[in-house]
Nucleic acid binder design. Structure first.
Length: 314
DNA sequence: ACTATTTGACCTAT
DNA sequence: ATAGGTCAAATAGT
């Protein structure tokens, strides 16, 4: 696999970096506009802020990877949204592991100090728990309830955050290939009441595009192979009322999360982008090569549920 | 009876 | 050798 290390193709990557920073700048401007709008929700601003953080994190990680000497000190890069304990997700300066994988992590809060992060639109069955070195709380391992009946390979890991008992880090692996059962509805799309928010999200998604020459990224999401195809993103989520389920009767749903994803192989890239392009408008922005783009993608399967909300981005 | 959870053992990658 | 991830028998809940 191609390594992200070194500064090969530096000029082209720098152009990409500049365009990315311009995008960040644009997002900041949009945030300012929305802050002045009376009908902009806090959630919207928070989501936008998280996106900005994710984009800047990606840029920082990119710089760190290509220009190690210029890597900023941690104190200059921390932010309320990115400054969490699980630093491995912050930048991608470490050597890639031999096993190509990407993961998707969201941070969710438990409503009312609940025992778990609550309903995310899918039914899960716990199959293990482990004490993690250096972590105060054990990590729970869940697989999709329909693993046997429908061969759904999706799994997730849930771990209570060290620094805040109300927060859970949830890492999703793979995507659901199962059909949701009646009565269990995926989380609603965010801010439907706010047209500004929708247009903004639209622009956000349209701004993140991928060079589809890297590995045939067209077509529908292909079924996952039996082996794990983890997904990593990071984000923040808030509780909101939604139908409870068997998971302790918790009542909450994900709120549009942020996300930056990193993937390490074209195969995984294909999986992510397939889901991504399913909701994205045709890409107007400059495309990014697979060496840079991978640091960030919205994980719409987690946040907006692609299958259930096909009309979110017409 | 069936399904979900718990938990120690086992497997695998580092 | 160790940590993380999964299996599967035992147990609990409906």
């Amino acid at each position: 696999m191609e390594s992200v290390e070194g500064n090969g193709g530096g000029r082209g990557n720098l152009q990409l970096l500049v365009s990315e920073l311009c995008r960040v700048q644009e997002l900041v401007r949009q945030l300012e506009l929305h802050l002045q709008s009376p009908d902009t929700s806090v959630d919207m601003c928070r989501a936008l802020s998280a996106q900005i953080v994710a984009l800047t994190d990606r840029s920082i990680g990119f710089v760190a990877a290509h220009f190690p000497d210029a890597a900023p000190t941690p104190s200059t890069t921390s932010s309320p949204l990115s400054d969490v304990s699980d630093q491995p997700f912050r930048t991608n300066t470490k050597k890639r592991k031999a096993t190509a994988r990407w993961t998707s992590q969201v941070r969710v809060s438990a409503a009312g100090g609940a025992e778990g992060p609550g309903d995310d639109g899918h039914s899960w069955r716990k199959y293990g728990q482990k004490d993690i070195l250096g972590a105060k709380h054990p990590r729970g391992y869940y697989r999709c309830t329909h693993r046997n009946s429908q061969g759904c390979a999706a799994t997730k890991q849930v771990q209570r955050a060290d620094e805040d008992h109300a927060l859970f880090d949830v890492v999703y692996h793979g995507q659901h290939t199962c059909r949701p059962t009646a009565g269990r509805r995926p989380p609603p799309p965010p801010n439907q009441h706010n047209p500004h928010a929708q247009s903004l999200l639209h622009s956000l998604s349209a701004g993140l595009t991928v060079d589809t020459d890297h590995g045939g990224l067209h077509g529908a999401v292909s079924p996952l192979t039996p082996e794990n195809r983890p997904v990593v993103a990071r984000g923040q989520s808030m509780a909101s009322p939604v139908a409870s389920d068997s998971n302790g009767g918790l009542a909450m749903s994900p709120y549009p999360v942020t996300a930056y994803t990193e993937w390490l192989s074209d195969g995984d890239l294909q999986e992510v982008v397939s889901a991504f392009t399913a909701v994205s408008a045709p890409a107007p922005a400059p495309t990014m090569d697979a060496e840079f783009m991978p640091y960030c993608l919205f994980d719409y399967d987690l946040t907006f549920n692609v299958d259930a909300q096909p009309s979110l981005f017409p």
